[in-house]
């Protein structure tokens, strides 16, 4: 009873947030709606006893990634409603529509074909057999999936270094910009 209620409320929050991300005219409002969706997902994680994933969801996604989104939106000054009629490719709009409809069709088809979308299987990250989920998650991360985990972190480091190299400006010769870069 309570579980169903929590699920319905959190799912509604997720869906409203997701719709808001797409429909809001103002990019900052979109980003805030995204935060709302992420919170809804975090609540779903808690309902599945995956407390750690819920915390990570809030700390990493809501707390860091969307903050960076907002940062970029504010710094680039695109924080006012944009003219959405403009598109870079002539078929862009239609392609987007097609892909959206396609993904929806796949999800619906999967539910229909499987026939029983609720499997009752517990989440891997959930609290199985009384061990708390942090321990469980750590054990699988550092034993079975340790190579995948380390390679992913390596990939992230490469991405960071790549980004730094790409944005590194050649030596400044224009005194005005140099002064800006200084103190």
């Amino acid at each position: 009873m309570v579980d169903t209620l929590v699920f319905v409320v959190a799912a509604l929050i997720c869906l409203i947030g997701a719709l808001g991300v797409v429909l809001a005219r103002n990019p900052v409002h979109s980003a805030l709606m995204l935060v709302m969706t992420l919170f809804g997902i975090a609540v779903q994680f808690v309902a599945q006893e995956a407390h750690f994933l819920a915390a990570v969801q809030v700390i990493v996604y809501a707390g860091a990634i969307v903050v960076l989104f907002l940062f970029v939106i504010m710094l680039l000054g695109v924080d006012r409603a944009q003219n959405l009629e403009m598109s870079f490719l002539p078929i862009q709009k239609w392609a987007a529509l097609l892909f959206a409809a396609g993904s929806l069709a796949i999800v619906v088809a999967l539910i229909v074909v499987v026939g029983e979308p609720v499997t009752g299987a517990e989440a891997m990250s959930g609290a199985l057999g009384g061990t708390d989920d942090v321990r469980l998650l750590a054990r699988s991360l550092f034993s079975d999936y340790v190579y995948a985990f380390e390679l992913t972190s390596l990939l992230l480091v490469i991405a960071v270094i790549g980004a730094v190299v790409l944005v590194r400006k050649p030596k400044v010769t224009d005194p005005v910009t140099a002064e800006d870069g200084g103190r």
Binding site: A55, I59, A62, G63, D132
Partner: peptide
């Protein structure tokens, strides 16, 4: 006393940025 304990604090302090 949630199982994530201290992570809750970090989560809140990262939300406070908003």
């Amino acid at each position: 006393d949630p199982p994530i304990g201290i992570l809750f604090l970090l989560a809140m302090s990262s939300i406070a940025v908003y």
